[in-house]
Write a protein that binds this DNA or RNA. Sequence first.
DNA 1: CTCATATACAACCATTTGGTTGTAGGTTAG
DNA 2: CTAACCTACAACCAAATGGTTGTATATGAG
Lengths: 110, 110
Amino acid sequence: MVVYELSDADVDRIFQALADATRRDIIKQAMLREQSVSELARRYAMSFAAVQKHVAVLERASLVIKERRGREQVVHPNPEALRRAARLLDAYEDVWRGRADRIGEILSGP
Amino acid sequence: MVVYELSDADVDRIFQALADATRRDIIKQAMLREQSVSELARRYAMSFAAVQKHVAVLERASLVIKERRGREQVVHPNPEALRRAARLLDAYEDVWRGRADRIGEILSGP
DNA sequence: CTCATATACAACCATTTGGTTGTAGGTTAG
DNA sequence: CTAACCTACAACCAAATGGTTGTATATGAG
């Protein structure tokens, strides 16, 4: 996923990833303390594979990054992506206020 | 959907609704100028029923409100919901910075 | 070395999603 | 009044989602 400009598909992936309480909690946990996938998995009432998939969804949305450390895969948050999502929502506020300058950000696509 | 406190399901619905480019565009269009569902529908390369469903998804997430005007149903934006979503994302920033005070907002649920 | 642990990934399943078409009911223009 | 228009909603379909189990592989502990 490109960092400096988000395509519609990028934005789709970000909000899609955020639309699940377990995934939002994984992000929060990773921000509180970087943890391995299995360490995260122990927190939830579901299989390891399910959590692994959730992390994969977050990774495809670049909301987290996995880094291999020995036999573990440690999950780092990517605060920048969240920031970009928040600013994207802020852009709607500008549209609402009648400012056209940041409209392009909302439904762009390179 | 309760306004003053968002449950996990509420937040799910909001981000889910935002995870589609057509729906994001509908929000933008409604913010630029309040339009009827059929008026909106003409903008997209899909059936009226499809657009109707998209508006319904936005409505369940309280991102828009429909108001009947004669035989038309005019779509108003609800900027407050967008604002709340943006602030929700901002709360992650606080977690990231090590501030615990607003953490509750993220994965709450009355 | 051996074994337990951590991850990867495939196959499967039920449900949801995003689209379609078709039908029916209100409302308004003329 | 009648015809055109706008909306509602059901039924259907393919694809995506969120979960499962099972199997294989890599790594570190002892």
